[in-house]
C-alpha cells in the first residue's frame, strides 16, 4: 500500500475540519444565535475523539478558531484533567493556536460541566460540550415528540416533573443540567453544569455556544440574554452551597470538589475551577490545608 503520511498538522486541514464542514457548522451557529435556546440539527462529523468525549464542542471550536485566538480547555472546571489536556493538545497541534489556563486571557474557552468562576467578558466565547442537548429527553424518549413540544411551547411535562420532585423530596431535586428557559421561549438544557452555574448563563458578556456531536445539535445563548432556571413561587430556584471553604485558597463562594483523603472519612474540599484557585493562592489567599500536595501539583507547569 502507499505510505500515508501520519502528520496531522500537515495532512489535515487547519483546525482539522474541511472548509465545507466549517461552513455548515458556521451557518448552524448563526441560526442558533438568531433563535436562542433552539437546538439546530447539524451534520455532525466523526471526529478523531469518540462521540461523548467532546466532539460537539470540538467541532464548534474548530469552526470558529483562528491563529489569533487564545484557547483554554477545562473539564470539571480544571485545566489539567486528562480529557481537557487531550483536547487542548489537539488544537495546539491542528490549529497552531496559543493555549492558556488563564480564564481572562482566553478568547475561546471550551468546557465540560462547568462555567468558570471568573466572570467572562465581551469578546470571549464559551463552548460547551453537551452529551444530551434535549432537556425533555429524560421525560420523553422520542425526538419526534420533544421536537413538537418545543415547536408548540408545550412545556407542561417539565413543570409536572419538577412538581413531582417537590412532592417527593420537598424540593426540586435536580442538581446538574437544571432546566432553563431562554428569552422566555425555548426550554434549554444548560448541559450537565451544576445548577450552581445556572445564574452565570443569563446576561453573560460572552457568547455561549453549545455543541452536541453525537446528538448532532448546536444551540446558543447570545450575550445579555435572559436565562431563567425553572422554579415555583413557593419553591424558588436555589444553588448549591457548602459549609466548608476551599482547603487550598479559602474561597467561600466557589464550586467545590470533594477529595477523599483516606478511608476513615477524612475529606478536603477544593475549588473545582483550578485556575480560579491558583489565582487566589497567588494573590495570597490561604485555606486551612494550603500546604497540601494537591496545591503543588496544580501549579506545576505543564
Amino acid at each position: 500500500m502507499n505510505a500515508r503520511p501520519n502528520e496531522p498538522e500537515r495532512y489535515y486541514n487547519y483546525a482539522y475540519l474541511d472548509e465545507q464542514t466549517k461552513r455548515m457548522i458556521r451557518r448552524s451557529i448563526l441560526k442558533a444565535l438568531a433563535i436562542p435556546g433552539y437546538q439546530v440539527p447539524f451534520g455532525s462529523r466523526e471526529m478523531p475523539v469518540p462521540y461523548g468525549w467532546g466532539t460537539g464542542g470540538i467541532q464548534l471550536t474548530a469552526a470558529i478558531i483562528g491563529p489569533d485566538d487564545v484557547y483554554k480547555c477545562i473539564d470539571q472546571g480544571a485545566d489539567d484533567t486528562t480529557n481537557a489536556v487531550s483536547i487542548r493538545r489537539f488544537f495546539a497541534q491542528v490549529a497552531d493556536v496559543a493555549v492558556t489556563e488563564d480564564t481572562g486571557e482566553a478568547t475561546i474557552i471550551q468546557t465540560r460541566h462547568r462555567i468558570p468562576e471568573q466572570p467572562l467578558k465581551a469578546g470571549q466565547v464559551l463552548v460547551f460540550q453537551v452529551p444530551q442537548p434535549e432537556p425533555l429527553r429524560g421525560l420523553e424518549a422520542r425526538e419526534t415528540e420533544t421536537r413538537a413540544m418545543h415547536a408548540y411551547e408545550e412545556y407542561g411535562l417539565q413543570y409536572v416533573s419538577l412538581y413531582e420532585s417537590v412532592a417527593t423530596y420537598g424540593r426540586i431535586a435536580s442538581t446538574v443540567g437544571y432546566p432553563t428557559m431562554v428569552d422566555e421561549r425555548y426550554l434549554m438544557s444548560p448541559s450537565p453544569i451544576p445548577k450552581f452555574d445556572n445564574p452565570k448563563m443569563g446576561d453573560n458578556e460572552a457568547i455561549l455556544l453549545f455543541g452536541a456531536g453525537r446528538e448532532k445539535r448546536i444551540y446558543a445563548v447570545p450575550p445579555h440574554t435572559t436565562v431563567r432556571s425553572l422554579d415555583f413561587e413557593d419553591y424558588p430556584f436555589e444553588t448549591q452551597t457548602w459549609d466548608e471553604n476551599c482547603a487550598l485558597c479559602g474561597a467561600q463562594d466557589s464550586y467545590l470538589d470533594e477529595v477523599v483523603l483516606d478511608d476513615t472519612g477524612a475529606r478536603m474540599f477544593v475549588c473545582s475551577d483550578s485556575h480560579f484557585c491558583a489565582d487566589r493562592r497567588a494573590a495570597g489567599h490561604v485555606g486551612p490545608m494550603a500546604d497540601h500536595q494537591l496545591a503543588a501539583l496544580e501549579t506545576e507547569p505543564t
Binding site: 469518540p50 461523548g52 466532539t55 465540560r112 431535586a173
Partner: peptide, 29 residues
C-alpha cells in the same frame, strides 16, 4: 456503534462535579 461506543465509554471521563452535586443532595435527603 461509533456513537454508542463513544457514549457508553464516556462514562469513564471525570464526573466529579456532577457527583459532588449528587453527594450533596443525597446527604441532605
Amino acid at each position: 456503534n461509533v456513537e454508542a461506543s463513544g457514549f457508553v465509554q464516556h462514562l469513564k471521563l471525570p464526573h466529579y462535579v456532577d457527583f459532588q452535586a449528587d453527594l450533596q443532595l443525597i446527604r441532605r435527603l
